[in-house]
Each structure stands twice: as structure tokens, then as C-alpha cells.
Write a protein that binds this DNA or RNA. Structure first.
Length: 492
RNA sequence: GGCGGCAUAGCCAAGUGGUAAGGCAACGGUCUGCAAAACCGUUAUUCACCGGUUCGAAUCCGGUUGCCGCCUCCA
């Protein structure tokens, strides 16, 4: 497969370091508040990466960290009058709840920064031994000597000269150079502190990821990534300090996903234009949110809106509707195995169309193999749905018919599974999707009552009364569908 | 100011040299007591704009405009 590598700015053939195994480190969250939909995009993206790699047969070790000690957590702890550990614990639990609600499984390893202080200090020792780390003043912060590392700026495409002219680099008298960044922060009175050769303190932001990634995945590993906004300075610094410490390449492929936006602007805490995962999930089913996140390419910006989510909801109905019909047909009629139609002219599909169904898995996989093009992969699924719907329209006793349906069903569920979609019971999911809206002007019980009365009227062929009820419900955004299994309703 | 990215139909969105996937919406038809769902058909001679390369460009090169991200904590 090919992946776009931020380091080289091009797609590259993915070759894992060790045959058949992949190590992935995804930057997680800083636990000082509930996470928003941008964090969900990140989590779902890496989940899909992992699922696809596993589907291909790779054994994947997936690491996602928690930054559980930093300035923002300390500030939050002070505001809330709680110990920082409690704040961190609370938001770790909150994150895990959100992930569970979204259907994102836990990573294999979810290390916390505060439990890897010794590993970080070890890296700083190595950096000091190689002349990359220095303490600004006795008992003060420890910095990384950026200019000593030749490749600095390579990942983010920055040149040292340009960066200096950039206005907003913090000026700190203790630094040898404004570009140098903190490895270890000397603690102020009242702040949490760990002992170190440089005095009591706590880690800088970047060092934790170097330490935890190398501990669990080795000094050189395959995949590392996060949001595009982490490229600089976080990943640039991480790369520099890691390679300076080990003298070896740190990461082979850097993956960065685009950011979630609202009105084309980045969703972020500081702008205040964010929706938490909890808020969004209160209004839309998790699978709708997942579909929305996966339905465009991961490196593009993705604009959040109610309309976009509503569209995702309708699109999911389109995917689940044939699944429900297929199940009904395949389960009820006990259509067992049997050959898939091969011969020309069979079963009401043109040769070319049958070919499309036959190559669905292959094309899906190729789309995913091309830098994880989930939008294209989903497009193929929709194409298959149209063909399957057509088959369902024209029941046939031809020998290959049942086989085609069965394979269609299996493919949709299996391929959907790579994206963690289409795994729910179709009939149940359709009910949820159709009846989702909370602010109904009428209760489900009342709707059922009216449906009963209408059914009675229909039995008596009293079309006037039946239509009156249909219209009465339509006025409250309830749409009725008469099916062979009875009348069902949904929200407009 | 520096670095990077993006501009494809009413909306969302694939497509990186060979003649525009897919979804939503809309309209017409089939089906239906009426509907819905589903199916069939229609909806970009054209890919921000201007030049260039090429037999051929949405795709490559140069320029222009607009938007976004990073350069500061941020997925």
C-alpha cells in the first residue's frame, strides 16, 4: 500500500520494518477537558488505519498516549481546587467513555506521561551526554540545542533562518538560542515535581512521546502521526530529540490528518468554536458521526455542520436498507450456498455490472491501499448497493441469483467492518436512523395508535380516512411506509 | 513576513496526463389505493482565473485571485 509521508511530502510504498508487523504511535489527548469532534476525527482515522492494516494481515501494535501532566492540567486543577491527578483521571475516563460511545476500540497500549518519567530522564541524559541538552541556569529548565541537530526543520519544511524571523518565538534569557525548546521544566513551589539530575521538575511536552514511543515500539518504528497541527513544533521537536539521542532514524512514515473545521475555521478550544463528542453523540448516532468522518479524505479539512451530519444519516440509511432486505430474504428463505452467477445474461445484470460486484473487495482494497482513500472505498460500496438493489427488485430462481445476494451481503458487512461501519443489526439500525430526532411533536405510542387506526381503515378500503391519518402524521414530520411486513414510520 | 495546503455541479466529495466515481438535493418515469422505499432516466462539453508544455491536462509548469493551516498550547 501507499501512504503519504509528511517527511518526504509524497506517497510512498509502505514497507514495515519487520515483515508482517507494524508499530503505530498516534498522539492522543491532553486530559484537561472533554474532547471535541476534532479529537474524534483523529481517533477514528487511526482506528481505520489499524483496521485496514489488520485486514491486510499485518499484526499491528497501536499505541496512543495520554498527556496527563502539563500546564493546562495544572491550571485546571487549580481552578477546580482538585489535585492534578484527579483532573487527569477524570478526563481520561471521559475520553474513554467517548471512544466507547463512538465505537473506537482502545489501543493496545495507552501509556500515560506521568508514569514514564524515568524513561524521559534517560533520554535527556543521553542527549546531555551527546551535547544536545543543557541547563540554562542552575536548577533551571533543561533545553534542547536545536542548532546542533542538522536535520531540524525537515519534517515541517521550515528553515532555521526563516523561523528566527518569525515573530512569535518566545524569548527566554536562559536559552542559548530562541529556537531551543524545553526538555525538562524546573518546578515552581507548589507544583508537582519529580527528582532529576537537574533538580526537581516535570517533563516538557515533546519528550513524553519520544520516551513512550521508543519504549513500546523501539528506537525506530513504522508509523507515527496526529493532526496536521502537530507537525510543528511537536513532531519536529520529537523527531529531533529522538534521533539526537539514539543516532538512528526515529519514524519511517509520518501520517498527519486534516483538521475538523466549522465555517471553514479550525475547531479548537481557543477559538471556542467546538462541539464535544458528547454533544454531538447526543444528537446523532455514533455510526452517523463515523460515516461523516470517513466519507472524505483524511488529509483534507472537513467542515462540520448539522446539514453534513444529516446527509451522512441519509446516506447510511441507503447502505443499511439493502442489508435489511438481504437479511430478510436470505434468512427467511433459507437460501443456502450455491454458485454465484457467472454466465452471461444471467440474473438481470449486465456482464460489466456483475464484474463490478465480483471485484468489489478488490477495488475497495485498492482504494484503501492508495493512501487510505476511504471516500473512494465508500463510493464503491454505494455502487454495489445500487446493483444489489436492482437484483432485489427482480427476484429470480436462476441458480446464481442467491449466491450473488449472499456474497453481496457478506462483502458489504466485511468491507464495512474495515471502516467499522455496517456492523449493527440492519433492521434495528434503520429504526434508530429513521426515528432519531428527539423533538417530535408526537409520541411513538400515539403514532402506533394512529397507525393501527389507519390499518383498520385500509382494511375497510376507507382511503379517505386512511389518507387523513397519513396527512395528520405528515404534519408532524412522520412519514409512513406500507411494507409487506406492515406499516412502519420514520421521521422526515 | 516565512512554510505548507486547498479551489471539481445547488451542496458534500473522489479523481494527479487519455477524455469527469459516489452521496445528498431536485425533476420526469416505473411500482403503489395514495405514499414511502427501490429501480430507470435527467442534472458539470467542464474542473477558480490567465498563460505554457503535450497528439492529448481537472491532472504537469509559470503567474493571478480567493480561502485555510502552521510558524504560540492545540487532534
Amino acid at each position: 500500500m501507499q501512504l503519504y509521508n509528511t517527511l518526504t511530502r509524497q506517497k510512498e510504498i509502505f514497507q514495515p520494518l519487520r515483515e508482517g508487523r507494524v508499530g503505530l504511535y498516534a498522539c492522543g489527548v491532553t486530559v484537561y477537558d472533554d474532547c471535541h469532534l476534532g479529537h474524534a476525527r483523529s481517533a477514528v482515522f487511526f482506528e481505520v488505519v489499524v483496521r485496514y492494516l489488520r485486514w491486510l494481515g499485518f499484526e499491528v501494535t497501536w499505541v496512543r498516549n495520554f498527556t496527563d501532566i502539563d500546564d493546562k492540567i495544572l491550571r485546571r486543577a487549580q481552578e477546580d481546587g482538585k489535585p492534578w491527578e484527579e483532573v487527569a483521571e477524570h478526563y481520561i475516563a471521559s475520553f474513554q467513555e467517548d471512544m466507547a460511545a463512538l465505537g473506537v476500540p482502545p489501543a493496545q497500549i495507552e501509556p500515560r506521561a506521568s508514569r514514564h518519567i524515568e524513561e524521559m530522564l534517560e533520554i535527556i541524559r543521553r542527549l546531555a551526554a551527546r551535547g544536545f541538552a543543557y541547563q540554562g541556569e542552575p536548577g533551571g529548565d533543561v533545553y534542547f540545542r536545536v542548532r546542533r541537530f542538522p536535520g531540524y526543520g525537515r519534517l515541517s519544511g521550515q528553515r532555521l533562518a526563516d523561523m528566527q524571523s518569525g515573530a512569535r518565538i518566545e524569548v527566554d534569557a536562559a536559552k542559548e538560542d530562541p529556537l531551543d525548546f524545553v526538555l525538562w521544566k524546573a518546578s515552581k513551589p507548589g507544583e508537582p515535581a519529580w527528582p532529576s539530575p537537574w533538580g526537581p521538575g516535570r517533563p516538557g511536552w515533546h519528550i513524553e512521546c519520544s520516551a513512550m514511543a521508543m519504549k513500546y515500539l523501539g528506537e525506530t518504528f513504522d508509523l507515527h502521526g496526529g493532526g496536521l497541527d502537530l507537525v510543528f513544533p511537536h513532531h519536529e521537536n520529537e523527531l529531533a530529540q529522538s534521533e539526537a539521542a539514539t543516532g538512528r532514524p526515529f519514524v519511517r512514515y509520518w501520517l498527519h490528518h486534516g483538521l475538523l473545521t466549522i465555517d471553514q475555521e479550525k475547531m479548537s478550544k481557543s477559538l471556542g468554536n467546538f462541539f464535544t463528542v458528547k454533544e454531538v453523540l447526543a444528537r446523532f448516532p455514533a455510526e452517523v458521526v463515523r460515516f461523516f468522518l470517513i466519507n472524505s479524505h483524511y488529509r483534507s479539512p472537513l467542515d462540520f455542520s448539522d446539514a453534513a451530519l444529516a446527509e451522512a444519516e441519509t446516506a447510511l440509511v441507503r447502505l443499511y436498507t439493502p442489508l435489511a432486505r438481504l437479511r430478510e430474504r436470505l434468512w427467511a428463505q433459507g437460501v443456502g450456498g450455491g454458485a454465484v452467477a457467472q454466465e452471461e445474461g444471467l440474473v438481470g445484470l449486465a456482464n460489466e455490472e456483475r464484474e463490478k460486484l465480483a471485484t468489489l473487495r478488490e477495488r475497495f482494497s485498492q482504494a484503501m491501499a492508495d493512501d487510505l482513500n476511504s471516500a473512494l472505498a465508500l463510493g464503491y460500496l454505494f455502487e454495489a448497493v445500487r446493483l444489489i438493489n436492482r437484483l432485489l427488485e427482480q427476484p429470480s430462481a436462476e441458480p446464481g441469483y442467491a449466491g450473488l445476494l449472499r456474497r453481496g451481503y457478506q462483502d458489504l458487512v466485511e468491507l464495512g467492518g474495515v471502516l467499522n461501519l455496517l456492523q449493527a443489526d440492519p433492521a434495528e439500525m434503520l429504526r434508530i436512523l429513521r426515528q432519531e430526532r428527539q423533538d417530535l411533536a408526537i409520541s411513538p405510542a400515539e403514532i402506533e395508535e394512529l397507525i393501527q387506526r389507519r390499518s383498520q381503515a385500509r382494511r375497510e378500503k376507507d382511503w379517505v380516512a386512511a389518507d387523513a391519518i397519513r396527512q395528520q402524521l405528515a404534519a408532524k414530520d412522520i412519514i409512513l411506509e406500507d411494507t409487506p411486513q406492515g406499516t412502519i414510520w420514520r421521521v422526515k
